[in-house]
Nucleic acid binder design. Structure first.
Length: 802
RNA sequence: GCAGUUGUGGCGGAAUUGGCAUACGCGCAUGAUUCAGGUUCAUGUGAGCAUUACGCUCGUGAGGGUUCAAGUCCCUCCAACUGCACCA
């Protein structure tokens, strides 16, 4: 074969053949073992694909292709998470309907993805903006509503002043909008909320049985932030009413020296008349209210507060009278909005007490509480604590919690940092919420038969400063009749967030054209759960958590067959520019995958992205590195010139072949694509060194390399006359016994320092190995031998003394 | 501040978990091919001292320790990145 490697023709040719032959369609043959590989579907932005996209797509494409060769029925789908702000903003700016913008962007993305030769089953493509799809997003919302998990409430929301939209807590980063960096302020609004907190315990506990990378588990746990403690009632002096607080350290109850109310605590207004320094308190409260969350965290260093004169609390364990302060370091949104302060054993309380000269009473021995708060719970014994004296912290917690319950002044309590999900967005380009408000009947769900509730055509998609969605201006759409009583009613004009459509899309892939259900029972039973889901770390506390929540709810509703959607979750690192910085237009370091495909070919791009470095770490782009991968593929291509016509493996290469099959196979499974490729490069180098390759050896190399570089290997497979299509070939087997060499070179050390090497039989006895080592060392071994160590097949170490 | 991750040649990165550090690739050097450049091929490439030899010394962020043996385990630091940020 003398033709040069021309990726352009080859890649186009095979992409068309695969499409015609439906090479990668997941079948409905439910008797075969299944494998569901999933990558996060992209948001089809106007910029098109960037080089970050192919990294995870290629990785799971490799897994999917390998699984097919191993006989699995593989589902590897792709779709579009297409609702969202950038499209809407683009539509506003250019006066094009967002539907058209989305359509164009999807077309572009799809073409780009197809040019990379992914083995997606395109017949199962989904699009969240398709009414046939969002019908079921709305259907799930109705289910949540009927189950009481979607509820409306007045509450302050995070309002992005630039996007003019409410944000979930998860979308506010450092007090600014995650998306645009705009200022976020608090606005009170009537909101649809989803009760994710109902599943808080399960979302933590069920992580246990899942194969998620540890980082993901840890951040989900931290985000949910479960803590165990107790609520305790302190009485207010000379009052009937109690002041309830939450603490994780009830064992330190004897060390309480003051109480703190959050500035929003209701008791402040309630006891206004008895507060002697009202002016001062009111002023402090005003000042705290004016601070945005951003300022609160910026200025977190310095504690502020004012003592409330005229109110005091009584410690239930010893009857001591305790002053009450107001301070914004206590949040109304967590616990009860009031705390007992134990400066000796809490850093924040300690800081506050030092600043305002409040007493510090040590109740757990082990530190110096005048110097710093002693917060270690693992060690330490209770002191100055009446009946708790002498107990360890853990034991003291149990004892005091029981005591609190017996005396009816408290109870055990679990708390979460996780808040309910602020669901709606005041924008046009999202799923309409299928609820109407009737003056008589309240909030009424649309009947299922009226789904999908389609987005109406509007004059303007412009968001409004009033906080209303653009839909609110569509009065003939808004005004409707109540499905319940037939009277006049108004539609909900907020839309759903982008997270809605992506919270269940993996279910739709199993049965994407079903018109009677979000997916058929049999399809779900067969395909779910997803066997391997790869996606970005940035979605850990957003999409990944939200979709687990929806899935658990659907499981409880008996819609899906398993309590968890994803069995395995991995995460890829980012691809940075040549300069090691994040790729961005402003930095001028963006690499366009189209350019790489044009210049080097899709197979080279795929190979390079897998070879660039450890899959889970970020890596910098290198144009020279791309060239090196192209060189590798060129050498594979030209290897055909060295074919010697023999069928099996040659005797001298047998071990190397078996070793390489083993290594490449296990490396693909463990996301170690870089070393898998390195092993194939090494094998190739060996063929060149030998000056010849058998057909059997070449065949194996083609199968191993196929998942990474599918086009050129398929072409070689055909031109060399191997049977059928390469994508239908079987994954090669290896024989463990044949991966071991007969003779091995072992290192020889004297006193732990490398001196020479010696080649011995792999199963040589210790005596033989030592003898061979001594011979090799010769005169380099001096002194009296005091110890001889032989690690079979690895090393000999002789310890000698003079 | 807390949590997580990372630190290995000129660069990207390997190292079967305690056993020959730097596989594989890039870059570079020398040579071959070429009118020349590019491509391709061959050889070399951690540092230092030596080059009489393939010889010695040092070397995986810093410092200590355990061990016959440490990139890998333990202790104390330092730096970078990414989350979270007063959650009682």
């Amino acid at each position: 074969m003398s033709t040069a490697y021309e990726p352009k023709q080859i890649e186009k040719k095979w992409q068309e053949i695969w499409e015609q032959e439906k090479a990668f369609a997941a079948t409905d043959d439910y008797t075969k073992p299944k494998y569901y590989a999933l990558v996060e579907f992209p948001y089809p932005s106007g910029q098109g694909l960037h080089v970050g996209h192919p990294r995870p797509y290629t990785a799971l494409d490799i897994v999917a292709r390998k699984r097919r060769m191993q006989g699995y029925n593989v589902l590897y789908p792709m779709g579009w998470d297409a609702f969202g702000l950038p499209t809407e903003n683009y539509a506003i700016k250019n006066h094009i309907h967002p539907r058209i913008v989305t359509h164009n962007n999807v077309g572009r993305f799809k073409e780009q993805l197809k040019s990379l030769g992914y083995s997606f089953d395109w017949d199962r493509e989904v699009n969240t903006t398709d009414p046939d799809y969002y019908k079921w997003t709305q259907w799930i919302f109705l289910k949540l509503f009927q189950a009481g998990l979607a509820y409306k409430t007045e509450m302050p929301i995070n309002w992005c002043t630039s996007c003019k939209v409410g944000l979930a807590n998860e979308e506010v980063v450092n007090g600014v909008c995650e998306r645009c960096g705009g200022e976020v302020v608090r606005r009170v609004r009537s909101q649809w909320m989803l009760k994710i907190t109902e599943y808080a315990d399960q979302l933590i506990d069920d992580l246990e049985g899942l194969d998620y990378i540890e980082r993901v588990k840890v951040s989900q746990k931290n985000w949910i932030g479960r803590s165990h403690g107790a609520e305790v009632d302190f009485s207010l002096k000379d009052k009937e009413e109690k002041l309830r607080i939450y603490t994780t350290r009830p064992d330190t109850l004897f060390g309480v020296t003051y109480m703190v109310l959050s500035p929003e605590h209701p008791y402040i207004d309630k006891y206004k008349d008895e507060i002697r320094n009202w002016e001062e308190i009111a002023a402090y409260r005003e000042q705290a209210a004016r601070k945005s969350d951003f300022e609160r965290s910026e200025l977190a260093k310095e504690k502020t507060g004012v003592e409330i004169q005229g109110l005091s609390a009584v410690n239930p364990v010893n009857g001591k009278e305790i002053p009450i302060w107001i301070s914004d370091y206590v949040l109304m949104s967590y616990g009860t909005g009031a705390i007992m302060a134990v400066p000796a054993h809490d850093e924040r309380d300690w800081e506050f007490a030092k600043k305002f000269g409040l007493p510090i009473i040590e109740v757990v021995a082990g530190g110096n509480v005048q110097e710093a708060a002693f917060t270690d719970v693992a060690t330490g014994t209770l002191v100055n604590s009446g009946f708790l004296n002498g107990l360890e912290v853990a034991e003291a917690k149990k004892t005091i919690t029981n005591w609190l319950a017996e005396n009816k002044v408290g109870e055990p309590k679990k708390n979460f940092k996780l808040r309910d999900w602020v669901f709606p967005r005041q924008r046009y380009w999202g799923e309409p919420i299928p609820i109407v408000k009737c003056d008589k009947c309240g909030y009424v769900p649309l009947p299922e038969s009226e789904l999908p509730l389609e987005l109406p055509e509007v004059e303007s998609y412009m968001p409004t400063d009033t906080g209303e969605s653009p839909l609110a201006a569509m009065t003939d759409w808004v005004n409707t009749t109540c499905p319940c009583c037939g009277g006049p009613a108004q539609r909900e004009t907020d839309t759903m967030p982008q997270w809605a459509g992506s919270s269940w899309y993996f279910l739709r892939y199993t049965d994407p054209h079903n018109t009677n259900a979000l997916a058929g029972k049999e399809a779900l039973a067969y395909w779910m759960p997803v066997d391997w889901y790869n996606g970005g770390m940035e979605h850990t506390t957003l999409h990944l958590l939200y979709s687990r929540f929806w899935h658990k709810f659907l499981y409880d509703e008996k819609v899906v067959p398993c309590p968890e959607p994803y069995q395995k979750r991995t995460s890829h690192g980012m691809i940075l520019g040549e300069n090691g910085e994040k790729m961005s237009k402003s930095r001028g370091n963006v690499v366009n995958p189209d350019d790489i495909v044009n210049e080097f070919g899709a197979d080279t791009l795929r190979t390079y992205e897998m070879f660039i470095g450890a899959f889970d770490l970020s890596a910098s782009w290198s144009q020279e590195g791309v060239r090196g991968c192209r060189r590798f593929l060129d050498r594979v291509w030209k290897l055909a010139e060295l074919l010697n016509g023999e069928e099996g493996y040659s005797a001298s290469m047998e071990t190397k072949m078996h070793q390489t099959i083993k290594k490449v196979g296990s490396d693909y499974e463990n996301l170690k694509f870089n070393t898998a490729i390195a092993a194939m490069m090494a094998l190739l180098n060996q063929f060149y060194k030998n000056g010849s390759v058998t057909r059997g050896e070449f065949k194996t190399l083609l199968v191993l390399l196929n998942p990474v570089a599918p086009h050129m290997t398929e072409e070689l497979w055909q031109t060399l006359g191997f049977e059928g299509r390469l994508y239908q070939a079987s994954w090669p087997e290896y024989d463990e016994a044949k991966t071991v060499e007969n003779m091995v070179e072992v290192g020889v050390q004297v006193n732990g320092k490398m001196r020479t090497t010696v080649t011995i039989a792999v199963d040589a006895s210790k005596e033989d190995a030592i003898a061979a080592a001594k011979e090799a060392l010769g005169s380099k071994l001096a002194g009296t031998v005091v110890k001889e160590i032989y690690v079979p097949g690895r090393i000999v170490n002789i310890v000698a003394k003079n």
